[in-house]
Design a protein around this nucleic acid. Structure first.
Length: 386
DNA sequence: TCTCTCACG
DNA sequence: ACGTACGTGAGAGAC
């Protein structure tokens, strides 16, 4: 990937100024100087020096956590919490991306060359390292400015990005065969609204924002094998309400429940689960007598076939796209894969030719009953291509 | 080298 | 009473 180095160097200076200012404000509010980058020192300042109430969870080693959840809980008690969150965002962006990426530009090619590792992730996903280009910021406004630094090779090219829509949930529909979920995708409904309509037993048009928000969380949680405790935590409702939501969900989508149980039972019998293309993940703890250990294995039994099948799908699409690009001798290149997204350094003259090729190869990589969908965008950088 | 935290899907 | 949503990689601090 070509990186706009001057752009990042300028951004770094800006972040440096902001960082010094925010660090100073944190010290002022604490009434003492300390290393804000040290979770240990920070915990000491917050919970011993300032005596703020600790509501977070302790870390695995018993240290008082200062992570985002813990700091969020402190906002109502002390203005220092927001400042620290601000500091953390700036520090992360600067050290991990804005300062690090320019150092990794290859002097011969003028680009960064990530490695895509094929035999690391237990589910069959790819992993990217040195640098990791699968975790470039996008969610926050300051983070989006990092994405802008990912640019085409020259003026004759644009960045083209193609991503699958709701790929994991579509694969849950495919693998479970659940009629209600399949129907929602066949009708091209907004999937979270459709889920809310079923769970709350109201018309699609009567689904409120709150209902959709909660249904969205359930849809994500399902893929991970989440329980009532996790859902309650996530959407801020009682465990009773969360339990009810989940029960309604499974009543409406009975084959999803069945599919999840089938996977757990298959794992207990065979010691592994598998994806749509037969990739296995062995789960040695599936019959453990330890509740916690077994619970982890059971959630893996639910999640791995879904996450891994999505990985199978996009890999096959990548092979098909690469073959076609070779065959037609395109100048355009496939440069990144981010789990459900493919990024291209696309020649402007080829854009309209390769768009339908990419789309067709992506949605037809595997024959499925559920319709697959992909969205394609382009622009002068990776942010604009979304 | 481990721990904690946090960036992404 | 326990712990509680999956998969990664990387930077800074602590040891």
């Amino acid at each position: 990937m070509k990186i706009d180095e001057p752009f990042l160097r300028a951004y770094s200076k800006e972040l440096e100024t902001d960082l010094l200012k925010v660090r100073d404000e944190v010290h002022q509010l604490a009434g003492m100087d300390f290393n804000v980058d040290s979770p240990k020192q920070l915990g000491d300042v917050l919970y011993n020096h300032l005596k703020l109430p600790f509501e977070g969870k302790k870390t695995s080693t018993g240290q008082l956590s200062t992570n985002e959840d813990a700091l969020q809980a402190l906002i109502k008690h002390h203005p220092i919490a927001e400042k620290i969150l601000d500091y953390r965002e700036l520090a992360k962006l600067k050290s991990t991306y804005v300062d690090a990426l320019p150092l990794m530009i290859n002097s011969k090619t003028g680009r960064v060359h990530s490695t895509f590792r094929q035999a690391v992730a237990a589910t069959g996903r790819l992993a990217s390292d040195n640098p990791n280009l699968q975790n470039i910021p996008i969610r926050s406004e300051r983070g989006q400015r990092v994405r802008k630094a990912f640019v085409p090779r020259n003026e004759e090219y644009v960045i083209l990005s193609a991503d699958y829509s709701q790929i994991e949930l579509r694969l849950v529909a495919e693998l479970s065969g659940d009629e209600n979920l399949l129907e929602a995708f066949e009708k091209k409904l907004d999937i979270h609204t459709a889920t809310a309509s079923k769970v709350y037993d109201v018309a699609i048009t009567s689904v409120t924002k709150d209902m959709r928000y909660k249904a969205k969380s359930v849809n994500f949680g399902i893929i991970y094998g989440q329980g009532a405790f996790g859902l309650a935590e996530n959407i801020g409702v009682s465990r009773g309400e969360a339990k009810e939501i989940i029960e309604n969900y499974f009543a409406q989508f009975p084959k999803i429940k069945q599919y999840m149980n089938d996977n757990i039972n298959f794992a207990r019998q065979n010691g592994y689960v598998q994806t749509i293309k037969g990739r296995r993940r062995y789960l040695k703890d599936i019959n453990s007598k330890n509740f916690t250990v077994r619970g982890f294995a059971e959630r893996n039994a639910i999640n791995s076939p879904v996450q891994g099948s999505a990985a199978d799908l996009i890999k096959l699409a990548m092979i098909d796209i690469h073959r076609e690009f070779k065959k037609q001798n395109f100048k355009s290149r496939m440069t990144l894969q981010v789990h459900d997204e493919l990024v291209f350094d696309a020649h402007k003259d080829e854009v309209e030719i390769i768009k339908p090729i990419i789309y067709e190869k992506m949605i037809h990589a595997i024959k499925t009953r559920v319709p697959l969908e992909a969205e394609i965008g382009m622009g002068a950088n990776w942010l604009e291509a979304h």
